[in-house]
Design a protein around this nucleic acid. Structure first.
Length: 642
RNA sequence: GCCUCCGUGGCUUAGCGGUAUAGCGUUGCCUUGGUAAGGCAGAGGUCCCGAGUUCAAUUCUCGGCGGAGGCCCCA
């Protein structure tokens, strides 16, 4: 007998030897249709696999993560099947499921064109309609597998490298090496779309051949595909490049160059507010502001190691007789400031803060809006402390990071990578003892602040462990913003020291830290996070005044002047347009408060207030409104309704 | 850097081997209207740049620059 547990918690007993598909059918027609695979005693199996006695069985559908994986992976096979029919000479590499959808890497002599993709999609549809069952072939030996995949050089390489049992799935005229499980029949793939094609290197190594990676998405239901495509369209509406243009925040110029965005007045307001807030968070915690030039002699970076590390990413500047480098990092400069002063143990920790622009000649294919640029402004800071001070300092920094992102409303939007040493300890600089203290300090700070962190082995920098804060943009791409890094290397290279209690020279630890990461990248995430609807303190235009008729413009100007005096960012819409038109434009510019003035307001010395969320708050005395705005803008906390 | 796609007035875009649509914006005039687009008229384009093919290129080919997505990279 087989005991099975249903999703509703009830149990059922059935004869052994039957398949997952039969069990699903026994439970109900609906489940029979939705079933994709089966989990037997915790192991995923094909729906067609016979189930042995006393097994605990769970039917897997698209609702589960595993179900999606199987579904998308089978879709990748369907894609490969179609490609093989149209291009018999194509060689298959790998075709996994990804977070959303699937891809297949294919080696073909001529890259796919858009027309090819349409043909492939049509062929996939044909295969689905043929409703051919998928069979699983278990290979007893590697040779057996090799024989089945003899024309597939990439698959043969995978077979050579694999240790587990090898299986091949076969559907009609097509067979493909695959661990499984797999859909019993591709007819379950009711709707799909090839989304894009890109170049991708075999095994992810640039030295290897570049293959064609065909991406797709699929669903067991037509409506789900429609919803998915709709969701992608919606996400594109908050794209910071698009919003930045629409709201006049920043400008790209072909003459200035790619990866070099220019901040327009409205963008600069946001940036200034962020920098001001960052300094507010630091000034009470013992930080001091410094400033460093944008170029330095090459020898500085040769000493720091950045010369070798950055290689051709450095912008070089030729002086009359000396070679300079546009700074790719601020650290070496900050080291020089520290070195100049003879600090004693009593002075430590020393905390320098400088929002500073650095320059990196990134590969052209990497540049993207504000997220990846060639001139980026780090809200950089360096701490110089004793080993036993690391923990307290890291805790303070984590506290600042939490407060900063809490205020912005992004505290639930990130995960933290606790990047520590891997097994090969020889790749890292510094003693085991120092590493252990540093790693533990970071971990304790993460624990005590209840960070959503994952310990990732081998992700540490060679010079020390770190905490990286990872955020996602509107389209789900991950970006690193905040970071806290311990560094045992630079103090060594620059021979930094402080005088200890015993009047001896001792080496400090350096902690690099950034809260926003880079102001440019942070702004890109910020714009998408708010979809352009900034809270009042960040908003480039906080108030728009518009008149019912032109004769009220004078009053509008008076009110605006009064507000400007109080530091409110206000604009008057002077156009002779209809009220509706002016309201609409202000709403689309996502301006927080829209004030309408006419006969009544002039008489009563009031303004009629409307928010960008269609709330009409009615008439308010001018002074009262100003008071309210100032209070809201000072507090930086998000209003509940946004 | 590599792969695919793309580049038309400030923005969004139609189109085509014979120098070009439309909407928004902008300017002027009419309207002075009370909360998401009032009407009419006008201005504005070396169709990204360069070379080639052609009687003729915005359109085809090649190269460059720029953009989107992906790969590699990301201190």
């Amino acid at each position: 007998m087989i005991k099975i547990e249903l999703p509703d918690g009830s149990r059922k007993e059935l004869d052994s030897g039957i398949t997952g598909q039969q069990i699903a059918e026994d439970i109900g027609q609906r489940l029979a249709q939705e079933a994709l695979a089966v989990k037997v005693d915790g192991t995923l199996k094909d729906l067609t696999a016979p189930i042995t006695a006393n097994a605990k069985v769970e039917i897997i559908t698209f609702e589960q993560e595993e179900g999606k994986n199987i579904f998308w992976h089978s879709s990748a096979h369907l894609l490969a099947h179609a490609i093989k029919r149209i291009f018999p000479d194509a060689k298959l590499a790998v075709g996994p499921a990804i977070t959303e959808g699937f891809y297949y890497d294919i080696d073909v002599d001529t890259p796919f064109t858009t027309e090819d993709l349409e043909k492939i999609e049509a062929e996939m549809k044909k295969i689905v309609e043929e409703k051919i069952d998928v069979e699983r072939i278990e290979c007893k030996t590697k040779d057996e597998a090799r024989a089945l995949q003899k024309d597939e050089p990439y698959k043969l390489q995978i077979i050579d490298e694999s240790v587990e049992n090898i299986t091949v799935y076969k559907q009609g005229d097509f067979q493909d090496l695959c661990r499984g499980p797999h859909l019993p029949n591709t007819k379950k793939i009711k709707s799909f779309k090839i989304t894009k094609v890109a170049g991708a290197y075999w095994k992810g190594d640039e030295k290897n051949k570049q293959l064609q990676r065909v991406y797709g998405i699929s669903f067991p239901d037509k409506k789900m595909l429609k919803d998915y495509l709709f969701r992608i369209e919606e996400a594109k509406k908050r794209d910071h490049v698009k919003l930045g243009k629409e709201l006049g925040l920043f400008v790209m110029s072909e003459l200035v160059g790619s990866g070099l965005p220019l901040l327009a007045p409205k963008g600069m307001i946001i940036r200034n507010e962020i920098v001001r807030y960052l300094w507010d968070l630091h000034k009470s915690k013992g930080y001091e502001q410094i400033w460093t030039p944008h170029i330095a002699k090459d020898v500085l970076y040769k000493t720091s190691g950045h010369w070798d590390k950055f290689g051709d990413e450095l912008f070089k500047v030729k002086g009359k007789s000396e070679e300079f480098v546009m700074k790719p990092m601020n650290c070496p400069h900050h080291m020089q400031i520290y070195k100049n002063f003879n600090y004693s143990y009593k002075d430590l920790p020393i905390r320098y803060f400088e929002p500073a622009t650095v320059y990196r000649d990134e590969k052209s294919g990497e540049l993207h809006g504000l997220s990846r640029v060639r001139a980026l402004t780090q809200d950089d800071g360096h701490l110089f402390c004793r080993i036993d001070q690391i923990k307290q300092e890291v805790k303070t920094i984590v506290g600042i990071i939490r407060e900063f992102y809490e205020t912005i409303g992004m505290n639930d939007d990130y995960w933290v990578s606790l990047s520590v040493r891997g097994d090969d300890k020889s790749k890292y600089l510094g003693s085991d003892e120092v590493w252990e203290i540093a790693e533990q300090s970071l971990q304790e700070a993460a624990d005590e602040n209840q960070l959503n962190y994952k310990r990732i082995e081998g992700e540490a920098a060679f010079y020390g462990p770190k905490l990286d804060f990872m955020f996602k943009d509107a389209l789900g791409r991950e970006w690193q913003l905040a970071t806290i890094q311990c560094d045992f290397n630079l103090p060594e290279r620059f021979d930094l020291s402080y005088t200890s209690e015993n009047n001896e020279k001792e080496r400090p630890v350096v902690i690099h830290r950034a809260i926003s990461g880079s102001l440019e990248r942070f702004m890109s995430v910020l714009i998408e996070h708010f979809a352009g609807k900034f809270p009042l303190w960040l908003s480039p235009v906080q108030v728009k005044i518009l008149t019912v008729a032109d004769r009220f413009l004078q009053y509008a100007d008076e009110v605006a002047a009064q507000m400007r005096d109080m530091g409110i960012r206000v604009e008057v819409d002077r156009r002779s347009e209809s009220v509706s038109k002016k309201v609409r434009d202000a709403q689309m510019q996502k301006i927080n408060y829209i004030l309408v003035v006419g006969e009544k307001e002039v008489e009563d010395k009031t303004v009629t207030v409307r928010t960008r969320n269609n709330e009409v708050l009615g008439p308010q005395a001018v002074d009262e409104f100003i008071g309210h705005i100032i209070a809201e803008a000072t507090d930086r906390t998000l209003p509940k309704d946004e």
